[in-house]
Design a protein around this nucleic acid. Structure first.
Lengths: 207, 207
DNA sequence: TGTATCCGATACATTGGTGTATCGAACGGG
DNA sequence: CCCGTTCGATACACCAATGTATCGGATACA
């Protein structure tokens, strides 16, 4: 029997955990902090999870799944908006792409730590790889379509996907390290454009 | 008065700290663990540092300074080796570049966590940005020279530097997530090539 | 509404790490 | 070689967090 209360409790614990992990760092966070922020006692935690590690994984999985969903939605919106008209050039495609890809400091911190943590455990490494694949997979259709719209095709979508994820990760850090400075953001967009250009070619037959 | 013993103690603590941080994660590491591994008691630690945070910063600064030094040396070796002969193409330059840029899992974990940690404190953010600049600065001369050797010039070295750092960070994670698989490494090299190509142009007058 | 079950609060014993204060040994200048 | 200084070891009091065991209130379903 799975009560409604339980679901809500679990959910609140997850939410407060993100905040606590982001503030304190995962390793420095305690069960008490997470529970206190959520308005529960430790009993609630131990009734729902075995260890903080388990909660950490649950948080990460939920949030990155959400992230993928949000991206997919944003993509679909763009496709509808720009259904008829040509998006123009690669810069235009990149602009749309970047609008759909959030760079959130809180989440960046948490997932950077999760990454470092996960590298220690083979099964967690697999989770990471899997997630990256999912991100690439949910991005690809939109991106390929948008590029086709401006007369470009991608010979090796897998390679492009991996490249874009890498570029996103790397530049996100730079943007967050220098908050307020627009320069890293411009360079980020430029790098995306260059990479996408390099990984695609002009289609032979253009509509 | 600064004793020799003290210097050695400090150094050993730094070394054991890297190992402990990499194994346990920074947040989970304790003063005791660091001291035990180094063969000291906690007294030694408190005599040399105020807090674990301070040690963490010291570790990070020392190691990343070393990293820069090692890269610079590797670059100089290459320049001597390939003094006369043309390096060939961009792929050749990238091959040399990547040979000089280490991807070390232990260090990756530590610095990923340090990054996440540092994002919380403005003054640590500055340290990170500064370090990134130093890396770019120490790489640039070699890279520009090597490119000049194959008849390419870089209009905006700053942008290229930032792009390469981002690409390095992003792809390093991918390579470490899938140990044993050579594919990420190939793609990493390919991405470097594409980026360098995109950020450089053929020189008008070629020697 | 009654009741069996589920869930989270509370209390407790325990652990493991902290920081300080003190002491003895190693060091280095003379 | 000796003495003053520096450094790290030891011991201690303290605290914060853990995990468990138990209990009472909430919840779902008849």
């Amino acid at each position: 029997m799975v009560t409604k209360r339980r679901i809500q409790t679990r959910q609140r614990l997850l939410e407060s955990a993100v905040a606590v992990f982001a503030e304190e760092g995962f390793g420095r966070s305690t069960v008490e902090q997470v529970c206190a922020r959520a308005g529960y006692s430790r009993g609630a935690f131990y009734s729902n999870f075995e260890t903080l590690d388990e909660l950490f994984l649950a948080v990460w999985e939920q949030r990155s799944a959400e992230l993928i969903t949000r991206m997919r939605e944003a993509f679909e919106d763009f496709q509808q908006d720009t259904a008829g008209d040509v998006a123009g050039d690669v810069e235009g495609v990149v602009a749309n792409l970047l609008r759909a890809v959030p760079v959130d400091e809180e989440w960046f911190r948490v997932s950077a730590e999760f990454t470092a943590h996960a590298l220690r455990y083979p099964e967690l490494r697999r989770v990471i790889v899997e997630r990256e694949r999912a991100i690439a997979a949910s991005t690809a259709p939109f991106l390929l379509a948008a590029l086709a719209g401006i007369g470009r095709t991608v010979p090796d979508p897998g390679a492009l996907g991996q490249a874009l994820v890498a570029v996103h990760d790397g530049t996100a850090l730079q943007c967050l390290s220098e908050p307020g400075d627009p320069e890293p953001w411009r360079r980020r967009a430029a790098l995306f454009s260059h990479v996408i250009t390099a990984y695609s070619v002009e289609s032979k037959e253009q509509s």
